[in-house]
């Protein structure tokens, strides 16, 4: 939305708000607090894992809740409030971070494509090898490996594996079909494993090149 339209929209909203009496305002506030606050833990954890630090996560949550309160009239009672809040946060996140680092929509595809290439070229996993990986990995390394995932994969892994959301919930949060949730999750976990392999190699838990652990992998796409 253009800034001018935003302002127009806002003035409209502002005028509407002014017609509300003090009582109505208070009721609106209480309603918002009762409905929206219980989801803060979930949103905060997602924000924290996406931004990687407390300050940015707090900013994002504040912005989300203030926006949600501002647009509370637009929320339809009885619909999924968790998904509604999540979408507000996702938009704020995109405005804040994606804009800063790349042109929207342009670089994403290549990045993901590159990732696939490496994942499929290096079939490094044997059961012997991964024992080494899984035993010696700590929280920080999992977090670092996670942070390296392209955004759309990181998002589903955080939601499913850290926050324990169901596929149906994730599909609704992200406006994608359940089949897409499924495949992104599979690929996301696989990429993460590859990152962990790199750490393990760097730290000397395992030796040699990925090719030494070669294994025919039909998982081509």
């Amino acid at each position: 939305m253009k800034l001018k339209d935003k302002i127009k929209e806002f003035i409209k909203q502002e005028k509407k708000d002014r017609k509300l009496s003090d009582e109505e305002l208070l009721k609106r506030q209480k309603e918002f607090e009762a409905e929206a606050l219980p989801h803060m833990q979930f949103l905060y954890n997602f924000a924290y894992r996406m931004t990687g630090n407390e300050e940015d996560a707090k900013d994002l949550i504040q912005e989300t809740y203030l926006k949600a309160f501002r647009f509370w009239d637009k929320y339809e009672p009885g619909t999924n409030i968790k998904a509604w809040l999540f979408k507000i946060m996702k938009n704020s996140y995109i405005n804040k971070y994606r804009k800063a680092t790349k042109e929207p929509g342009k670089v994403d595809y290549d990045e993901v494509q590159n990732f696939y290439e490496t994942v499929r070229d290096e079939s490094f996993e044997t059961s012997d090898l991964q024992e080494h990986i899984f035993e010696n990995i700590f929280e920080d390394e999992v977090i670092e490996a996670l942070a390296k995932l392209p955004e759309e994969f990181r998002t589903v892994v955080i939601l499913a594996d850290i926050e324990g959301q169901t596929y149906e919930e994730i599909a609704e949060f992200l406006d994608i079909p359940i089949g897409t949730v499924r495949s992104r999750l599979h690929r996301g976990r696989k990429m993460l494993r590859k990152n962990l392999f790199e750490f393990a190699k760097r730290k000397g838990y395992i030796k040699g090149k990925p090719e030494d652990y070669d294994l025919k992998d039909p998982d081509k796409d």
Partner: peptide, 19 residues
Amino acid sequence: LEKKTKDLIRTRVKLINIP
């Protein structure tokens, strides 16, 4: 591997309390 990866993420990365 996928099962182990999931468990690894779930057990290593803890949920954080809201400040």
